[in-house]
Amino acid sequence: MRKVRKNLLTWAGAGAAAAFAVALGAAPALSAPAHSSPDAAASPVAASPYLYLGWGNPPKPSEVMKATGVKDFTLAFVLADGSCNPSWDGTRPLDADKAAIEEIRAAGGDVIPSVGGYNGSKLGEVCQDAQSLAGAYQKVLDAYQLKAIDIDIEANEFENDASQQRVLEALKILKEKNPGVRTVVTFPTLNTGPNDVGKRLIAKAKEVGADVDVWTQMPFDFGGNDMAQDTIKATEALKDLLKSTFGYSDADAYAHTGISSMNGKTDQSETVDQAAFGKIADYAKQKGLGRLSFWSVNRDRSCQGGGAASDSCSGIDQQPWEFTKIVAGFAG
């Protein structure tokens, strides 16, 4: 998910506005899935909203779990500490969030780390070759015996041909050394689907044999007019690209496709309200997508006094954790 530190305006990308009315406190109902992905459902990949423990007045994870039914979280962000070595936010050691991860696991859940984001020093750029980058990823897995890893590739790491290549080759090495570990690649999108750089990334994955489990687009800040429908349009385009690139069936292509939205007001003042996100989630469940997430649990609450969106509130009228409840419904 795109990384924001103190100011949402540091983000780059595009989004869309959704004009739906919804009664507060009610999570939209989800229909039964047309397809399913048992492996994804058994890991923290499928339904794990982003939680940033070093930013945005983070809530207590176990309290959010109890209030919403969500089990898993995507923890942001692992960056380079100045060398080819991973650390939370580039400054905190990997064991810094041990207590929170133990709290989540004690409550019956699990975590998937997100490596990258929009800002900061990226391992895919600092590490000079695929072997050393895979070693950095391995340190993250080993720190907590993790079952999955999310590579949020954006900005220069996404745009640069060489860093794309390193990331994909490193993921191939990681999967070869860790049978059963699931890999997610999260990246920006247009409202029509992957841009040329995204298409290049997916083509490279086939050439390399990276075997990515779920390709997750970030459908916001992307110039749309109807957030739910534009998200669905972009996701269908990604599904079609995966199908044609890897020779998947429709069901397999959907299972390798993910959505990571943004709740409330986006950086460009687009709105993803509860009804829009409910429609997105309903689509994800109907099609059997491999992942549904959003940025971020920190923002999944209204702003005091009706203020503007920030690192700790959504900027829309809502009850706490409404978007998290919708993701929990996808997992169920």
Rank of each mutant, 00 (worst) to 15 (best):
A27T: 10
G315L: 07
S244Q: 09
G193W: 03
K60N: 13
D221I: 08
Q304W: 07
A41F: 04
A237T: 05
V115E: 07
Q268C: 08
F294M: 03
Y52L: 15
K66N: 11
R166Y: 05
P188C: 03
A96I: 01
D89I: 06
Q286K: 13
A16W: 10
L292K: 07
N119R: 13
T189Q: 09
P194F: 09
L79T: 15
P194S: 11
Q268M: 13
S249H: 07
D97M: 12
L123F: 02
K206D: 11
N225M: 07
Y52M: 15
H35Q: 12
A251W: 00
T324W: 05
K6G: 15
V184E: 11
G198Q: 01
Y52V: 15
K199H: 04
S62W: 10
A255V: 00
S244L: 01
Q274W: 03
Q304H: 11
G108E: 00
S83Q: 11
E63G: 02
A42L: 09
C303D: 06
S132M: 03
S87N: 10
N263K: 03
S114E: 04
T74V: 06
E154P: 11
A253H: 03
R301W: 03
A41E: 11
Q131M: 10
L24N: 15
T324Y: 02
K98P: 03
A80S: 13
E270V: 00
T257G: 07
E169I: 03
P49E: 13
M227N: 15
A19E: 15
V45F: 06
A130I: 04
F246P: 14
L171Q: 11
R2M: 13
Q319K: 14
A32H: 04
K98W: 10
A42T: 08
E159P: 01
Q128N: 12
Y118I: 10
P33C: 05
K279T: 06
K239T: 12
T235Y: 01
G69H: 08
Y50I: 03
T189C: 05
A148W: 02
T271K: 05
W215L: 07
K233Q: 12
